[in-house]
């Protein structure tokens, strides 16, 4: 039975591309959860996030995001989710203009939140996107993913290129988002320490299959780190 409160539900999901396939029998995301999506390179983390964002179409099975099909109802889903990946292209213009431009695509765009996040991540509104450093670009992508107060935030390697201060700001922001109760975050990262610290649930993938799914505290504790766990499961990168 589908869970009406779930923000995301997957049922018998399968996606095949050339010699890679991803399979998820059943999975759901509840409001307020922060899910750490971990696994080695090629496990299917980015593919899963792209299926949730409607970038890819499932080969079979069902994906529901906020009760909607992310491919068939793409605009409605995209307006309610925030997507961030470290290599996502951004229009080349000044940050202020970019914000003004994108605000037109999201009815829930929050200018005050944008100002707060730009200040927190130390981004100059007059800077041109194509002149930002790697870390600045990552921070800007994070601001863009959160600016419209999405109900689901999908973060793919959000820590790339960030220094310690920026990483702390990132983690704080993710916890704030999830702390509002009605919103959830899925974070895919190789920074396992960060993931273990902020996520309250882990989804571990290996070779396109889910090998672990459960509360973080049940999988990782003070005696065993997430990295050691992944080694045990054969899912270390």
């Amino acid at each position: 039975m589908p869970d009406p409160a779930a923000l995301i539900t997957l049922r018998e999901l399968a996606f095949t591309r050339r010699d890679f396939s991803l399979r998820v029998a059943s999975w759901s995301l509840q409001p307020g959860q922060v899910v750490g999506l971990v696994g080695p390179n090629g496990a299917g983390k980015t593919t899963l996030l792209q299926l949730l964002a409607g970038v890819l179409r499932p080969s079979s099975g069902e994906v529901k995001v906020l009760g909607l099909d992310p491919v068939a109802q793409l605009p409605a889903v995209r307006q309610q989710i925030g997507i961030m990946s470290d290599d996502q292209a951004i229009f080349r213009m000044r940050i202020a203009k970019l914000m003004h431009l994108l605000s037109g695509y999201y009815p829930t765009w929050d200018r005050a939140l944008v100002d707060t996040l730009l200040d927190r991540f130390d981004l100059d509104r007059s800077a041109r996107v194509d002149q930002l450093s790697k870390g600045q670009g990552t921070r800007l992508r994070l601001v863009l993913a959160l600016a419209h107060r999405p109900k689901v935030v999908l973060l793919d390697e959000p820590g790339t290129g960030l220094d310690l201060t920026a990483r702390r700001a990132l983690l704080r922001t993710v916890l704030e988002v999830a702390g509002e109760g009605e919103r959830s975050v899925i974070i895919s990262s190789h920074m396992l320490e960060d993931v273990a610290r902020i996520s309250d649930r882990l989804l571990v993938l290996r070779d396109g299959a889910v090998i672990q799914d459960g509360p973080t505290h049940a999988l990782v504790d003070d005696t065993v780190t997430l990295e050691e766990r992944l080694l045990d499961w054969g899912a270390a990168g």
Partner: peptide
């Protein structure tokens, strides 16, 4: 940057 359109809600 054609890929910049990819994740917009359109």
């Amino acid at each position: 940057t054609p890929a910049a359109w990819q994740l917009l809600p359109i």
